[in-house]
Amino acid sequence: MKVKICGLTDVRTLCQVAALRPDHIGFVFAPSRRQVTPLEGERLIAHLQTSSAIVPQTVGVFAKAGRDELKQVLDRVPLQAVQLHHVEDTDIYQWIKERWDVQIWSTISITKSRVAPLNQNPYTLKEEATQQLSALDRCSRNVDLLLLDTHDPVHGGGSGKLFAWEVIPAYAAVAHQLQLPLYAAGGLDANNVGDLLSQYSIQGVDVSSGVESNGLKDITKVASFIERVRSYDKLN
Rank of each mutant, 00 (worst) to 15 (best):
L136C: 10
V211T: 15
R141L: 08
Q177I: 07
K97G: 03
E98S: 09
V222Q: 13
S106R: 09
P78R: 09
Q49C: 09
L79C: 08
S159C: 05
G60A: 04
N192M: 02
Q16M: 15
T124L: 09
K126M: 13
L182P: 02
T58A: 04
I92Y: 08
V11K: 15
A18V: 10
N191H: 15
F225Y: 15
R12H: 13
C6D: 07
S134L: 04
D189K: 03
L48Y: 01
I54L: 05
P122Y: 02
Q16I: 11
I219Y: 09
Q131P: 04
R141D: 11
L14Q: 11
Q179L: 11
I96E: 01
V28Q: 05
G41M: 06
S198V: 01
N214I: 03
V207I: 13
L133C: 13
S201E: 08
P153M: 00
T50G: 08
L74E: 06
S231Y: 05
Q179G: 03
V115E: 15
R141K: 10
D144A: 05
Q94T: 04
P122S: 10
D149L: 06
S201W: 00
R67I: 11
Y232N: 08
T90R: 10
R12M: 08
I45R: 02
T90V: 15
H85S: 12
K71S: 15
S159N: 07
G41A: 10
H155Y: 10
M1Y: 10
